[in-house]
Amino acid sequence: MGHYAYFVAIFLMVAGLYVTVARGNLVKKLIGLSIFQTSVYLLYIAPGKLIGATAPIVAPQYATYSNPLPHVLILTAIVVGVATLALGLALVVRIREAYGTVEEDQILAEDERRDADA
């Protein structure tokens, strides 16, 4: 497989980070964040896989095993990612209720207007 997996991971990483930073829409920011996190899953899992290897089941017919630990770690990371996304979306819902919009610049403009009134 060479380094292709890494190239894919790095492309996803940079793309996700870019979306998170550049987009003003809060939901799009979360999507970017998810892509960014997903890239890390790839980064972990790809090196654990050996071509032709199997799951680490001790049996006479299998000689080479894939490393299972990255999978286990990434299972945890996925759970964390899901929780983060859920919490982020919940916050977006609350923000939409409070401000009537999910565009960051509009929210900040609203806050500034409120400050100017006070």
Partner: peptide
């Protein structure tokens, strides 16, 4: 409501940091 946006911004930055 500003607490909400502050929390959201921290969530984005914090998650990037943790990742």
């Amino acid at each position: 409501r500003r607490a909400l946006l502050a929390a959201f911004q921290y969530l984005i930055v914090g998650t990037i940091g943790a990742t």
